[in-house]
Amino acid sequence: MISTAAPNESAKQTWSGIYTTRARAARAGLFVLVALVPSVLVLLPTLTFVANSFFVVDNGEIVKTFTLSNYATFFRDAEYWNVFINTLWLCFQVALASLILAYPIAWFIWRLPERYRYGLLFLIILPLFMSYVVKLFAIRSILGLDGFLNQFLVFTGFIDRPYMAFLFSRNAIIAAQTIMFLPYMVLPIFLNLERIPPSLIQASSDLGASAGTTFRHIVLPLSLPGVAGGLVFVFIMSLGDYITPQMVGGMTGHTFGRVVWSQFGVTYDWPLGAAFGVVLVLICTTLVAGVGLLSRQRRI
């Protein structure tokens, strides 16, 4: 073995040296073989879905002619447009509420001695493994008219009789989704905080900064990519969740996700639903790409 110094390099050269058309074909064949299943299961459905958004329904049948009428409906119909804007605002509120809770939590876990840190992190992540539907039901039974929150408030004398407004309100949606998505917000912030080298904190203190100044100028700016990641993650989850708003939001729960869903159930206008879906995808992609760009711009 004389060439042990860089066997990888020499191997690469040998490969390119003996490349034949057959070898290249074999390489392409292997790729097709490996890529086949994911392509069929992800790519084709996605293409079908996008294609459908350009079709229309006529007499209950999908007509496969190219048209932009579904998108025109979305932009022209004030009702859809209102629901859409309203939903974006709702999702933003959920993301913001999650952030307000999650940042102190992530910071607190990060500040703990290492031996407690991961245990408590695990504890805050654990609810993700509890049934979604059960959480929903439990939140309903907490917020309901004869729910535990009303009972507790009546019992402690804060209110005289059960108060309806907890359930089937916009705030109920925000509360429910915040509770459900909170761990998704804590995790990226914590992981980001943990990537800050301890020497940066020490250097800031060494240069005369108080704890508050160090937080404002060093910790907070360096944790912003995690914050942005968490915001986008929760926003997207909230945007795609079409069950929670209905179950705890009542009349206020008519969100864009529900509108999409109802095209596949009640109204049976699949192309319109697909077009609305494309709009959702575009928003999600823009947000994800935006965060990616943001964190690449920061020089960390």
Partner: peptide, 8 residues
Amino acid sequence: PPIITGLA
């Protein structure tokens, strides 16, 4: 969102 994967 799963709704997209689902409807696709």
